[in-house]
Structures are given as C-alpha cells and as structure tokens.
Amino acid sequence: MIDRLRSGVAAGALAGLAYGLFTWVVVSPTVRHLEHLASHGGDHGHDVAPAVGETATAVVSAGGGVLWGVLLGAAFGVAYHLFEPGLPGGALKPYVLAGAGLLTVSVAPWTVLPPATPGAEPLYGSSLRAPLYLGLIGIGGLVAATSVLGYTRTSRTRGRVAGAFVALLPLVALGLLSVVAPPTPAGGDAPAGLSAAFRWLVGFSQAGLWALIAVSFSRFDRRVGRRGTKSPTATAGGAD
C-alpha cells in the first residue's frame, strides 16, 4: 500500500510538473487572451476585481497544476493498490485505472458543467455548482465502476466483444445525461470556434495528465516490484 502510494505520488508529481509547465506556457496566456476578447464585448464577471496580479495568478496557477497532479497521483496509487485485482488488462491495468479516473474526475462533471470558457457567464451560482460537481464525481465513479465490472464479468463468460459492449452501456448512459442537462452558454463574447477549441484543449490536457500519471506509475511500480519481489505487505517498516 505505502509503496503504491509512494509510486503514485512520485508519478503524480512528475505529471504535475509537466502539467504545471503546460499551465504556465499555454493555459495562462490562452485564458488571458480569451478574457481580453470577452471583456471587449461587454463587462463580464472576471475582470471586475482581480484580487491578484496577472503574474501571481500565472505562478500560483502553475503551482496549482503541480499540486493537482500530486493529488490525482496519490489517489491513483491508493486506488490502484486496492482495486488492482479487479482491473482487466494485465500490464495495461494502470491505463484502465487512469481512464476510469479521467472519467470520474473530469468527464462526468463535464457532461453537465462543461469547461467554462474564460469570460463566459456561468450558468449556476457557485453555491450550487460545488455540490453539483461533487455529485457528478460520484456518478462518474459509479459509471466507471459499473463499466469495468460489466466488462470483467461479461468477458469471462461471453468473450471480449460482448464485454466491451456491456462496458459501453454505462458510458452511453452518461452521454445521455449531457443531452438532458441544460446547455451552458457557449463562450460569452468569444467566438464559438475559439471556445470550442478551448474545451478541446482542456479535455486533451486532462487526458494527457492522466496518461502521464499512468505511464510513470507503471514504471515506478515495476521498479518497486523488482526491488521487493514479495508482496507489498512485507514492507512493514514503512507502514505508517
């Protein structure tokens, strides 16, 4: 457990560093630019009272990216240790779990609350958004779990294709949720294409973050497995 947690945090820190750099180099300038565009059309929310300067925002946001990676990595390590016996895919298990994580933390909330384009007016107040976000994370976890469970159960008896089909069903249900949910305003005064591009950027950056966590985690985990060939319970020294 502790070994897995350590691998997870290390992988998360590595991925988080890359992601923080990405936030610094790509996201911050993009957000600046989009908000600049939005503020020319009318006076929208964000540029009313920025309590912090732009440089500070960029620095802290990059740091936030690193911490985000560490947080996800730690959760990933613990979840991997607990759920590893139930995951399909052999050597690809970390990637399956990373996909489940992406689905839980990002994709499920996005079905109702898509990534906000900078400068756009949010649909709900923040007091409603926070519980909604947490609830959607819960739903995402449920969807990921049923999908994986459905795959392992069905593929054991009826083959992989049937398993993949069953695994798709919860995902389709989640997709329907995004159809039912009220549409969020696309992009304020920023051009529609630009705000769509921003959403893709966000989506791909999160997918990349999870992929990076999975890659480096499987690397670290293999090294740990080689070092202590016995089960992880043998490392009593680092128990707590």
Partner: peptide, 8 residues
C-alpha cells in the same frame, strides 16, 4: 483562476 479554467 487560470488553473481552474485549464483543468476544466
């Protein structure tokens, strides 16, 4: 702020 936007 930027981080939240970037992470969606």
């Amino acid at each position: 702020h930027d981080f939240r936007h970037g992470a969606g």
